[in-house]
């Protein structure tokens, strides 16, 4: 009950004013958008070319799907995970500490809740750009089997962005310094990248590792994206996975608000 009350209070402090926080970051990004977009395009291209074409030469298919097509949805998911995670850690942390952006906003009618919401939305927006870039590139260069459900993938990318943005803000909320983020990236993000089914089916892993994979949020995004990408739709698991992603996002969003509030208001 206590938790519900706290959530209610947080909700009551969120108005559309959080858009200003988002817009500020967007405005700054506009100054350097070209290198940012080029980076979004080049990195996944390298992965797809090196792994898809290289390893794909030896592994002809996984469960009947050509290797390149198998990993495209995985790279879409992991790219957006990385984009949201970098922005939500290094980016948000800098704005919260050295740049004093949060402090400056905090004396205006914008609440902590709205600051966090704006930051999460911005990180998710960067995730969206990154994931969408992979999707478009793979459609242009590799012309995969086209399923109409591909049109739903951008929605999944946004949800994945919101998920990793919230998780990153949560990490940022108690990070003592930049060094802390290297643990987060090594322990959490890299582990998810390697084990969540981006490159091979999780069923290949020993049972004990598989159970750990099930607590990794990226696993669920990869599952959904791959199903939509290949058009192998199974409605019930799909909805279950979506629900898990949304639940993860909400939990970490509220936790970030709680801890950032504690950090900023003494």
């Amino acid at each position: 009950m206590k938790i519900l009350k706290a959530i209610n209070e947080i909700n009551s402090n969120i108005s559309l004013r959080f858009y200003a926080v988002f817009y500020r970051n967007f405005r700054v990004w506009l100054r350097f958008y070209k290198p940012s977009i080029i980076g979004d395009i080049i990195e996944p291209l390298l992965f797809l070319a090196a792994l898809g074409l290289g390893i794909g030469k030896f592994i002809h298919n996984i469960n009947g799907t050509p290797y390149l097509l198998y990993i495209i949805p995985g790279i879409i998911s992991s790219s957006s995970m990385y984009a949201a995670s970098f922005e939500g850690t290094f980016g948000s942390y800098t704005r919260m500490t050295t740049k004093g952006i949060f402090d400056a906003i905090l004396v205006t009618p914008v609440s902590i809740e709205e600051i966090v919401a704006g930051e999460v939305l911005w990180s998710a927006a960067k995730a969206f750009m990154s994931g969408l870039a992979v999707l478009l590139i793979s459609l242009i260069f590799f012309r995969p089997y086209i399923s109409v459900f591909i049109l739903l993938i951008p929605i999944v990318i946004i949800l994945n962005g919101l998920l990793f943005a919230s998780l990153s803000l949560f990490i940022t909320s108690f990070a003592p310094s930049y060094d802390f983020f290297s643990y987060y990236f090594t322990v959490a993000i890299s582990t998810m990248f390697l084990f969540s089914g981006v490159f091979y089916p999780v069923s290949a892993l020993p049972a004990i590792i598989r159970y750990i994979v099930y607590i990794m949020p990226l696993y669920y995004t990869v599952q959904i994206t791959r199903a939509l990408f290949l058009g192998h739709l199974d409605l019930l698991p799909l909805l279950m996975n979506l629900l898990i992603i949304i639940l993860f996002s909400l939990i970490f969003f509220y936790l970030s608000v709680y801890f950032i509030k504690k950090r900023m208001i003494s």
């Binding site: 952006i101 400056a104 004396v107």
Partner: peptide, 13 residues
């Protein structure tokens, strides 16, 4: 209107 002791102008703008 608040003028804080630590200058927190937005240096990116």
């Amino acid at each position: 209107g608040v003028v804080p002791q630590d200058d927190n102008l937005d240096e990116d703008l």
